[in-house]
Design a protein around this nucleic acid. Structure first.
Lengths: 322, 322
DNA sequence: CACGGCTCTCGACAAAAGTCAAATTTGGAT
DNA sequence: ATCCAAATTTGACTTTTGTCGAGAGCCGTG
């Protein structure tokens, strides 16, 4: 019988091994297959999320620094990846941590909003598989037809795939050439519904982009480096779900933003848990803006960024006191 | 440095091993300790619930029979442990399954009501450790000073311990010698509060007892075998949280019930998720009564019991049709 | 009907993880 | 100050697990 490896068998093997604690050879004899097959089934079981191995992320929240950041910025929860540490690649560490935190925050039946960017895609890429039931992953902003692997729809789909969830993609460009067209498209029932549905999400996952020539918006051709620079002098401080925000975390009043198809910030703020992940130390100011705008309730950052945040908070407090 | 095994180290080791996928020797060199220590830390991490390994119980709900039972009895979810199966001890299988299901149903911040009995204690005993935050486990009924290890308070405490949760015990006897005393005790603020708090639970875990000489009530001396027999002829059909219920799942009107200190059935019904676990095939009628009384929304049983339930449902439907 | 292509299965080897008794260290008691 | 008991760490050993290539069964296709 070399038909389907019978998902059934994978389940049974996983059950006997993980729940009952039998050894692989015991499982093999119970199921009348070779031990090698059992080993393979178990790997599949882990890969498909039939078994879930998760480590508590407590270590990173219990950190004193994390508490201080929480207090200073009035955030619900903060996780800090130690950078001094024992790991080869510190930036991956943030993503691994973010993935764990994300999985810990997701509940069955949740609706999850996902933005895009290298950070988000990295998280999706290393996230372990899970078998959440009734979860929907919705794309928070329009697409960018760039050749990058971290296109908005890719991020959404990949996360949906890992979670065994339903992915709701957004079939519209991120940015159009005229404001009229953008307005018209936003009024389209399909788009309209999806945009309206953002506020119903239980959890959002995004990062914040910097306003410079390295931004994805520039790399993907949505804006030129020069335009970006111009926006910067107009007060642009960061990029959230494809939109430019100012230092107070509000949408910057500019042509580009009016041509963008993306979730409104108000809808994002309506989401109960807003998980923001920042990998690059260079994104200090964008992050400050996002926090100021109330766009994040849960935060995953590196130790260095945490220090800068605390220094900043102390400076502000000092100024206020004097 | 053989001071505190530094919970910190356990966390780090678990993190590197499970989240980053390093090998034990890699973890060892990262943390500058021997591989053997890493192995030990990892075991502790598993034992204390710092890492969680859970297997999806889908296999058992996806079962066609489970669906039919759900439909026939209007239950939210049913899990059926295959009994024909590949396991040495079939009754343990139900408990292992129940433990998994239970852990899958528990959420952070939940309040959990736990009754007592051999079944419940078995579940507690094999349940893996978890690190739920802010969970409270409350005892649903008074104590019985029996020498059995599955006393009500033991069940509560053990489950609380495994979950790293707070245990709320009930410092009152299950049954008193006079109705007056019971009434008086129920009016005591401490007791009163705890009884009132039952309805606020998010999840209940219990089994149902049979009305015979093997009942715990008899074994623990709350009732004599003769009294039990008498109650049976008065319509007693089962035991829920120390109380006698009739075939319709209501409290039987008898002196014993009036002398009992336990959660009211109405409070139990107010709990959103009521997980009932039945191991013994002999408890068919008690289970029917409990279902009739709406005392269970989630059910874990063996395949044989499931068959009997379906047969019964078919018979009832047939009678109705004719 | 034979043919690849495909997946699953198995046996054997290599790698990794679990275990144990002895050695070492620590904190507290005498 | 010194010693004892408890707990932790270690190195060596055993057991368990992961992996690879070969072989076998199944399917659609030519």
């Amino acid at each position: 019988m070399a038909i389907r490896p019978a998902e059934q068998l994978i389940h049974k093997a996983a059950w006997l091994y993980y729940a009952h604690g039998l050894r692989q050879d015991e499982v093999a004899s119970q199921l009348n297959i070779s031990r090698a097959s059992v080993a393979m089934y178990l790997r599949k079981a882990r890969e498909t999320g039939i078994v879930n191995i998760s480590t508590s992320t407590q270590l990173f929240t219990n950190d004193i620094m994390a508490r201080r950041v929480e207090d200073a910025f009035k955030l619900d929860a903060v996780w800090i990846a130690p950078e001094n540490a024992y790991l080869a690649d510190p930036s991956t560490d943030i993503a691994v941590l973010a993935a764990s935190v994300f999985l810990e925050l997701v509940k069955k039946g949740d609706r999850i909003g996902v933005a895009w960017g290298r950070t988000v895609y990295t998280i999706a890429d290393i996230m372990s598989y899970a078998d959440l039931q009734d979860v929907t992953v919705v794309q928070l902003c329009g697409n960018l037809g760039a050749p990058y692997s971290y296109r908005p729809d890719q991020c959404t789909m990949e996360i949906a795939r890992r979670l065994n969830a339903k992915g709701l993609n957004f079939y519209a460009p991120l940015v159009l050439s005229t404001e009229e067209l953008a307005q018209g498209l936003r009024a389209e029932p399909v788009i309209r519904d999806q945009l309206a549905g953002v506020a119903d999400c239980d959890l959002a996952l995004y990062s914040v982009g910097a306003v410079d020539a390295d931004s994805h918006l520039v790399k993907c051709g949505a804006l030129t480096a020069a335009e970006m620079e111009a926006l910067r002098s107009q007060g642009a401080a960061g990029v959230i779900a494809g939109q430019i925000i100012d230092a107070s975390g509000e949408v910057l009043d500019c042509s580009y933003n009016r041509r963008v198809i993306s979730a409104e910030l108000a809808s994002l703020r309506a989401i109960e848990k807003r998980l923001m992940v920042v990998q690059e130390d260079t994104k200090f100011e964008p992050l400050l803006s996002a926090i100021a705008g109330g766009l994040c309730t849960h935060l995953v950052i590196g130790a260095h960024m945490a220090e800068r945040l605390l220094e900043h908070a102390a400076a502000v407090a000092g100024k206020k006191a004097s």
